[in-house]
C-alpha cells in the first residue's frame, strides 16, 4: 500500500532510518570496497538507504580514486538490482538508475567513455517503463550529454540536451537548466 500522507511520512522515516544505519557501514566499506565485491552480501545491506549512501560515496571518491569510486558504484548497482520487492517498483527503478549513473561517472572520470555510455544505457533501461521518472531520465540524459561532449561528439550531446533542458524547464529546475547550458 503506497497511498496516503501517513504512508508517505512512514516511508520517509524508513528511508532516513536506513541511511542512518548505512552510514557507519559505508564508511567502513569505503576503505576497501573491492573486498566487499567478493564477499556474499549481508541481507541487512539490501536497502535503498545503503544504495544511496554507496552511490554518494562513489561520487565523493571520483576525484580521489576513480577506481575506488567504481567499486563503490558497482556494489551499489549490485544491491540496487536485487532490492526486495517490498519497495515500490518506481523507487527500485530510480535507485538502480542512480547506482548505474554512479558506475558511469566512475568510468567517465577514468576516461573510459564507452563503458560510461554502456552504464548509462543500463540506467536508462531501469527507468524506461516508469512514467513518473521523467526527471530522472533527464538527469541521465544530462550525464550522457557530458560524456558525449567529452568524446567530442557535440552534435549528439546537443540533441540529448534539448530534451533534458525541456524537462527541467517543466519541473522548474533552474539549477539543472544551468547545468545543461554549461555542457
Amino acid at each position: 500500500m503506497i497511498g496516503g500522507a501517513a504512508t508517505f511520512a512512514h516511508f520517509a522515516r524508513k528511508l532516513e532510518g536506513e541511511r542512518i544505519e548505512a552510514r557507519a557501514i559505508v564508511t567502513t566499506i569505503t576503505i576497501d570496497p573491492e573486498r566487499c565485491l567478493d564477499e556474499p552480501l549481508p541481507p541487512a545491506w539490501r536497502t535503498i538507504g545503503m544504495v544511496d549512501l554507496l552511490s554518494d560515496a562513489a561520487r565523493q571518491e571520483l576525484v580521489r580514486s576513480p577506481r575506488r569510486s567504481l567499486h563503490l558504484a558497482q556494489l551499489a548497482a549490485a544491491i540496487a538490482d536485487a532490492l526486495p520487492q517490498s519497495y515500490p517498483r518506481v523507487m527500485r527503478a530510480q535507485t538502480a538508475a542512480d547506482a548505474w549513473k554512479a558506475v558511469s561517472n566512475a568510468h567517465r572520470f577514468a576516461s573510459r567513455h564507452e563503458a560510461a555510455l554502456s552504464a548509462l544505457d543500463i540506467a536508462d533501461k531501469r527507468t524506461e517503463n516508469e512514467p513518473a521518472l521523467a526527471y530522472d531520465r533527464a538527469i541521465l540524459a544530462l550525464a550522457r550529454a557530458i560524456t558525449l561532449r567529452e568524446l567530442d561528439r557535440p552534435e549528439e550531446a546537443l540533441g540529448v540536451l534539448d530534451d533534458a533542458r525541456e524537462t527541467f524547464r517543466e519541473y522548474g529546475d533552474a539549477q539543472q537548466i544551468a547545468q545543461c547550458d554549461l555542457v
Partner: peptide, 15 residues
C-alpha cells in the same frame, strides 16, 4: 502516488 515516491527520492535537490 508514483510522482510522490520519486519526489521522496529527489526532494533534496528540489527547490
Amino acid at each position: 502516488q508514483e510522482v510522490f515516491l520519486d519526489f521522496l527520492v529527489n526532494a533534496a535537490r528540489v527547490h
